[in-house]
Design a protein around this nucleic acid. Structure first.
Length: 465
RNA sequence: GGCGCCAUAGCCAAGUGGUAAGGCAAGGGUCUGCAAAACCCUUAUUCCCCGGUUCGAAUCUGGGUGGCGCCUCCA
């Protein structure tokens, strides 16, 4: 299985540290706001990686953090930090808010059929581990104290910037707006911040009350759950230059060797070919997608149709196309599910589909191609249980929920109310009598009730829209 | 200013040296009382432009043009 490693900018054969086990750390959500579909694309990517590894026979040790410690400054009431405002308005504590948004997030990912990682640790429950990490770095001489915190000294760490291939000289020339005079290098970053009194969340430390720096949680929690060195770290491309660069610096400084073997990054989701942002009002959520009548799985399908390393452009037209395609795909899967037992297929057909599928998946998660193979299997002229079985296998990676949805499609037809059955029967009589006017009226009426009628050679078929 | 990514049909998109997957939309057809749904067929002599390498390039190379992202605790 080949994966593209941001560190080497190349596809590399995946070789786990421990035979048969893949250890993964994924940067998770910050739970002070609703996660938008751009965030969700990242988690779909994370999920595909999970599933692809399992498909290849690996057992997983997968961690996704919940960042429930923000830098919430209680007097920041300007536009950006709306959650603090909400905290004030609702009289809720940061933890209550975090709990609420964590709940929404979990529901969202469940609807996207994203498997839950084995460990989902919360930052606030690992302050001790973070402090210990910082103290160790301080002991080793990689940190220094200023009036407002403990900073990592990047000049002490050889290789700072290797992930993003930063040109440190160039960065310095690019003069930052607010320079912290106490910092030895502009790119030095906080490991621990001393808290002003009004700061909502703070913990005791050797340096007084404070709160963790922005990058330490991932280093500390990955270490706790996966050990010093683990296989794969995932996140969004925006994390490459700062967050992950700093994580590398911290962990590698502490260990004296790389903590992560493969860095994988998911590209951004664009909206109408541009950046998604709250100020533009286009930071849609899964709830928005549902409100417009599309299923979360349609969004998943949309994500699957593009490589995770390419930007994906979201448009309402696009999600509509995805929904139609997904519905038809389910229809196709259902046709195979309904096929009689024992249908003969041409020799080698299944094997060919399966190999093409696996090759695509194992080529750095080329899911668009794999999806194409699935379509070819679905569209195959001969419908058979064997193909249905193969499709279920493929769905272990795709995660489009073939088995359940196909079942649902079948159930829907059979669970109509007697009232509706009655109308359908009246219409059938009208049709026999060639009373087209009445028949069409009933059809329109049922349509208004959300029931769609199809007159097939085998009789009338009613489905809920 | 620094760093990086991308450019394939109306749209989404695969393809990374051997002659353009798949999906949506569109057009035609089968079915139907008419529909709807479903199914079948058709749709890029060509891959932003100009050079180069090669028997052969969407794929490699040089230049140009266009688009986008990051450098703000945003996936």
């Amino acid at each position: 299985m080949k994966l593209y490693n941001t560190l080497s900018r190349q596809k590399e054969e995946f070789k786990p540290i421990q035979e048969g086990v893949a250890s993964i750390y994924s940067c998770g959500p910050t739970v002070y706001q609703y996660a938008h579909i751009g965030n969700m694309r990242s988690y779909v990517f994370m999920d595909i990686l999970r599933r692809a590894l399992k498909y290849n026979g690996y057992n997983l040790k997968h961690v996704m953090n919940i960042t429930d410690v923000g830098h919430l400054v209680s007097d920041a009431d300007e536009g950006e930090d709306k959650m603090v405002k909400t905290a004030k308005q609702t009289q809720k504590s940061p933890l209550e808010i975090a709990e609420y948004y964590t709940g929404v997030f979990m529901k969202d990912i469940a609807e996207l059929n994203i498997e839950k990682p084995e460990y989902i640790p919360k930052a606030t429950e690992h302050i001790d581990e973070m402090l210990q990490f910082v103290e160790e770095l301080a002991e080793k001489g990689f940190a220094y104290e200023t009036s407002d915190g403990i900073y990592f000294d990047i000049m002490k760490f050889e290789g700072y910037g290797k992930l993003s291939r930063l040109d440190l000289e160039g960065q310095i020339a690019g003069a930052r707006v607010d320079v912290n005079e106490e910092k030895r290098h502009p790119a030095d970053f906080a490991l621990w911040k001393k808290a002003p009194k009004e700061h909502i969340m703070q913990w005791p430390s050797p340096w007084g009350m404070g709160y963790p720096g922005w990058h330490i949680e991932c280093s500390a929690m990955s270490r706790k759950y996966l050990g010093d060195v683990f296989d794969i770290h995932t996140g969004g491309v925006d994390h490459i230059p700062v967050h992950h660069e700093n994580e590398i610096a911290q962990s590698e400084a502490l260990l004296g060797k790389p903590a992560v073997h493969y860095w994988l990054h998911g590209e951004f989701l664009l909206i109408d070919n541009g950046k998604m942002s709250k100020s533009l009002g286009n930071a849609y959520t899964i709830a928005d997608i549902k409100k417009e009548g599309y299923s979360p799985l349609a969004f998943r399908y949309m994500c699957l149709n593009a490589n995770y390393r390419s930007k994906l452009n979201f448009t309402w037209e696009g999600i509509k196309a995805a929904q139609v395609a997904l519905d038809r795909l389910f229809e196709g899967v259902l046709a195979h599910r309904k096929a009689p037992e024992g249908i003969e297929l041409e020799a080698g057909l299944l094997k060919r589909f399966e190999e093409d599928f696996k090759d695509a998946v194992n080529d750095d998660l080329n899911i668009p191609k794999a999806l194409g193979v699935a379509w070819n299997a679905v569209k195959h002229g001969t419908k058979s249980q064997d193909i249905y079985g193969l499709l279920l296998k493929m769905d272990n990676v795709l995660g489009l929920d073939f088995a359940n949805i196909a079942q649902k499609h079948e159930d829907e037809a059979s669970e109509l109310s007697p009232e509706i059955e009655e109308l359908v029967n009246i219409r059938q009589q009208a049709r026999k009598d060639k009373n087209w006017k009445l028949a069409d009226e009933i059809r329109d009426k049922l349509n208004g009730m959300g029931i769609q009628l199809e007159d097939t050679p085998e009789g009338v078929k009613a489905t809920r829209k």
